[in-house]
Design a protein around this nucleic acid. Structure first.
Lengths: 203, 203
DNA sequence: GCTTAAATATGACTCTGGTCATTTATGACC
DNA sequence: GGTCATAAATGACCAGAGTCATATTTAAGC
């Protein structure tokens, strides 16, 4: 790696680290780009050579977090247990991870939507969890297919539709939980809903 | 109503109308508060006497829209048809309404979240659809109770849990649809999911 | 109608995210 | 080591959201 590359990488990392620390300390809104750059020992303009906007930083935080979660999930997936159980554990596992830093999770979760909206400013090469399948949904889908194979899930179920529905449930529960200040049990909430989906509501 | 009250009401309405027109014409981001106030014939500071932030306007737009939707829903609810059918029609009805101005819907839908997050700046007296039940969920709940009564829905189903699950599904479908540029059928998407919930996925 | 207090309007000002023409550092080639 | 092209850093600058001390308008009491 050339000197240039090395320095670049270094600066990027420094911006990242400094930002993380400041955000954690004073929150996203209360941290200015000036502060970040001053703390990182660079000029203001330099920041924008690395990240198109201040909010874009969140995007990279999210990416980092998602990578971590992805690994968590992959581990969980390969266990040996009934599909439904693995599903529930998967949700809880991920939620527990988010729970570790609720404030940041909120930020990433809710701000991320705006990033998607404010198109044109999205860092390139990005996947947009939510529309086109996305990793999480795909993982749910293959889990469900497994369930269909071994008879835990009805043959007639379209695994993709079911996966999306599960994702909807997960997403909604997570959102509600992130909104709430009073902490209610995420796992109770989601398990009731997943149970319902398994059993069906129709007579 | 005193002269003061009348003027106040007038100004508020003018800000509202002018904003709506400008947002529609050039989009939310591309409309400045300066433009709004100039067009409305008031000073910049005055704007902030009426609305705490520019984004707060969206909140009131949303409220207005929600009131409209609420009426739509109430009408739909009182029809005579199987619960499931009414449910589906309800979703489609609301989605069709949103479809009329997809851009605005996106804005309200996604920006609203931020408003909730950036607490302290939320106009007082606001309900936050999403956490504590909310009108939509309550409506779904009573619809489901009706279904339990007349045997369309299993006795053992907790109507509130089911209502929240339906809301999750609705929300997710709506979100996906609002994200997508390529227009796929919202009704197809949601009906597949609702079907699934009725039937259940478990063997 | 005059006086006074409170509500409301005002716009100069501040603060911060983001831009861009200019300067500086790097590396390739001789 | 000198020259040149290109990548990267810089900070003065701009635009727009939001603030606030001050000015104006209203309403009430006399």
């Amino acid at each position: 790696m050339s000197l240039r590359e090395k320095k670049k990488q270094e600066t990027r990392t420094r911006i990242f680290d400094v930002s993380a620390a400041l955000f954690k300390e004073k929150g996203f809104e209360n941290t200015t780009v000036d502060e970040i750059t001053k703390e990182a020992g660079i000029a203001k303009g330099t920041f924008f050579n690395y990240f198109p906007t201040k909010e874009a930083l969140l995007f990279y935080f999210k990416e980092q977090k998602e990578e971590f979660v992805r690994d968590l999930m992959t581990g969980q997936m390969s266990l040996n247990a009934p599909v439904k159980e693995r599903l529930m554990d998967l949700f809880v596992l991920v939620a527990e991870h988010y729970e570790k830093d609720k404030e940041l999770s909120r930020l990433l979760f809710f701000e991320h939507k705006r990033l998607i909206m404010a198109s044109g400013k999205i860092p390139s090469g990005s996947r947009h969890e939510g529309h086109s399948p996305g990793h999480f949904v795909n993982m749910l889908c293959s889990l469900l297919q497994e369930g269909i194979q071994n008879g835990e899930i009805r043959q007639t179920v379209d695994p993709m539709v079911a996966a999306k529905t599960l994702h909807a449930i997960y997403f909604h529960s997570l959102m509600g939980w992130l909104h709430s200040n009073t902490d209610y049990s995420f796992s109770n909430d989601i398990s009731a809903k997943v149970d319902l989906l398994f059993t069906g509501i129709g007579e």
